[in-house]
Amino acid sequence: MLRLALSLIAGLIFGLGLVIGGMANPAKVQNFLDVAGIFDPSLAFVMGGAVAVTFVGYRLVFRERSPLFADQFHIPTAKELDARILIGPTLFGIGWGLSGFCPGPAITSLPLMAKGTLIFVPAMLAGVGLARFVTQKRLPRRLETTGGTA
């Protein structure tokens, strides 16, 4: 129960970060990607702030032997570069540019009920299910290590 509550709070903080940082606004994301047009560099600051805090925080957390409410840290172990690490981000990047949404902001935007969001999110979940199905069939053991990477 405590673990559920903490996951909820972590989600809330994450979502607030997206909203305050402007990432929940697809127009702002697309303007970040529009270097040759109405460029808005704000998102570099979101990424910078997030990576800086995570970089320092992870190093503090990893001094512990295990997480507080789980048996072990689930750290992605895959090191090799395969086709999936190129194909996946390529498809994702195209969809990201077309819509201005990546998974976090899309889910966070659901309660705002924009028509585009209500179409995007079910399609995204269908894509997640499809990829889960495809990777599961071909690489049943790998998924354990790479599925949690995301």
């Binding site: 195209i94 969809g95 077309l98 998974p103 999110v121 269908a126 894509g127 990829a131 995301a150």
Partner: peptide, 14 residues
């Protein structure tokens, strides 16, 4: 876009 984002992120593990 939704399909591409959903499939691409899970297929590319992130």
């Amino acid at each position: 876009a939704g399909l591409l984002v959903g499939f691409g992120t899970v297929y590319g593990s992130g």
